[in-house]
Design a protein around this nucleic acid. Structure first.
Lengths: 128, 128
DNA sequence: ATTGTTGCAAATATTTTGCATTGTG
DNA sequence: CACAATGCAAAATATTTGCAACAAT
């Protein structure tokens, strides 16, 4: 069953993701990895991003701006989308695990996880 | 400047949204409103959903399932996406306003809002 | 009469997929 | 050699938009 084989394209994508805090979209990853592998195709980027997310080696962030963003940092953390420059930034903040308990209080089902995205202005855009 | 005119299509879309707790996608709204206005076009549905969201008469919910969902209930509340049946349900729970303060604590920018989505199993899917 | 709104179709944008070829084990 | 992964192009999905006809004020 599904014997995973090495591929340099996948390694490059992984390396690119690990090396940025920009939370790039698939297309941004494509542009970036193309510097190293000019012949890589967008399909390969998508296939590998999906693979990495499935393997837990990357996170997919749905920010509501039309395309998915990817994060090589799989440690639990939260994000802010700047209303001004539309960048996605990491937030250094405590875990919000307790909100699962709040959600479960009056609910007949089961709460397994949550996704939180903050909106506001990043430090650079704050001054405007 | 932008003198808004009445349209029965828009009223029907608004009525449809108000009358459901299913958090429909644009296409689901289209199918629903078509019962009353068989000639309505998908473009009109999209235009009016965008209009209603801009006017604050509807909420757009980005659930990460490929299409946006819409909610006629604009009172602040939270949602759960069932991992099993993929429905979006309302959760009856306390406000999470305090998480904005937590996010702002070590952040140089400004926190203005948040969006939270819970994942788990709805009461019907819990028993499986 | 003016102009916002519609229906339709074409255009965008994003992501997925079929397939012949290439690369890994 | 077996089969996973790639590059390419076409397809599938979701949403937006240009425009002539229609409807509201």
């Amino acid at each position: 069953m599904a014997a995973v084989k090495y591929s340099r394209q996948r390694e490059s994508i992984k390396r690119y993701l690990m090396g940025t805090k920009a939370h790039p979209t698939a297309d941004m990853v494509y542009q970036g990895v193309r510097e190293e592998y000019p012949n890589i195709s967008l399909g390969t980027v998508y296939r590998n991003l999906n693979f990495l997310v499935e393997q837990g080696e990357a996170l997919r962030l749905t920010c509501g701006d039309g395309s998915e963003h990817y994060d090589g940092n799989v440690e639990p953390h939260y994000h802010l989308m700047c209303r001004c420059c539309h960048r996605v930034l990491d937030l250094e903040m405590a875990s919000l695990e307790h909100i699962n308990t709040l959600a479960a209080a009056n609910f007949g089902g089961t709460i397994e996880a949550h996704s939180v995205l903050f909106f506001g202005r990043c430090p650079e855009c704050k001054e405007v």
